[in-house]
């Protein structure tokens, strides 16, 4: 028969456990210290890098995107505030705010014909048209700028569809159904109640309800000379997107 553990044994065990714990946290601390050191170094390098390639970051959209991704991987958001090293160094905060304002202006200027829905391609086309060839922007820039605007409660949203993206700036939130219908519309350009119902797997009533809303806010147009009536979206109509402002 085994001897039961005595008080001494229990105490010994406890001391052992404490020792283990101590060692464990020591190792952890060491690791953390090293990590912090590494991150610090990485940050430094990133700052050096940013300073060195300031102009390229400002001018080259591809470069800018990769730089943003690099920053995000270490939890630095150069856009987070208007102050601080990153903004002073790069002026990128201003860059995106200014871009955001331009996007809003474009939405307002074209809303009478598209009801506040703009394809990202059109935004890109129109904004780059005004910019110098060595100062072009990418769709990534526009998406970032619009996301920044959200803090202002601007009600602007970027919606991704299968093939591309569009921006909507319609007062009042779009429901899931409206968004889904718009996504579908973007890919087919025009639709009928029946065609949308079968494509989305909805009942025709559900499509009609969503369409009624889109007609009411001026995003959709109805064509009665089609049998059955079809619905069109200026925002997704090629000739409208490329027409002179």
């Amino acid at each position: 028969m085994r001897r039961r553990a005595g008080v001494g044994a229990i105490q010994r065990q406890k001391i052992q456990q404490d020792k283990f714990k101590e060692k464990g946290s020591e190792i952890q601390e060491n690791q953390l210290e090293q990590m912090t050191l590494q991150m610090e170094k990485f940050r430094e390098h990133l700052e050096d890098f940013a300073a060195k390639h300031k102009n390229e970051i400002k001018k080259n959209p591809q470069f800018r995107k990769q730089f943003q991704e690099m920053c995000a991987s270490i939890g630095v958001d150069p856009l987070a505030s208007g102050k601080g090293f990153w903004c002073e160094m790069l002026g990128v905060g201003d860059f995106y705010y200014e871009l955001g304002v331009q996007v809003v202006e474009l939405c307002v200027a074209t809303s009478h014909r598209n009801g506040g829905v703009l394809s990202l391609d059109e935004v890109l086309l129109r904004l780059n048209h005004r910019r110098r060839p060595d100062n072009q922007i990418s769709s990534d820039d526009i998406v970032r700028a619009v996301k920044k605007l959200r803090v202002l409660g601007s009600g602007m949203e970027v919606v991704a569809t299968g093939s591309s993206q569009f921006i909507y700036s319609i007062p009042g939130e779009l429901s899931m159904d409206h968004t889904a219908l718009l996504q579908h519309a973007e890919s087919v350009v025009h639709l009928t109640v029946a065609s949308a119902a079968s494509a989305l797997g909805w009942s025709q009533e559900r499509v009609s309800r969503a369409l009624d809303h889109l007609l009411r806010v001026g995003v959709a147009w109805r064509d009665d000379q089609d049998r059955p009536p079809s619905f069109w979206f200026p925002a997704f109509f090629q000739q409208c997107a490329t027409a002179a402002e």
């Binding site: 064509d223 009665d224 000379q225 000739q239 409208c240």
Partner: peptide
């Protein structure tokens, strides 16, 4: 011709007052 001329619903008067 402006873009609207090739936009089919342009030839249907729209119900929405703003549109």
């Amino acid at each position: 011709w402006p873009w609207q001329y090739s936009f089919p619903p342009f030839f249907t008067l729209q119900v929405n007052a703003d549109v």
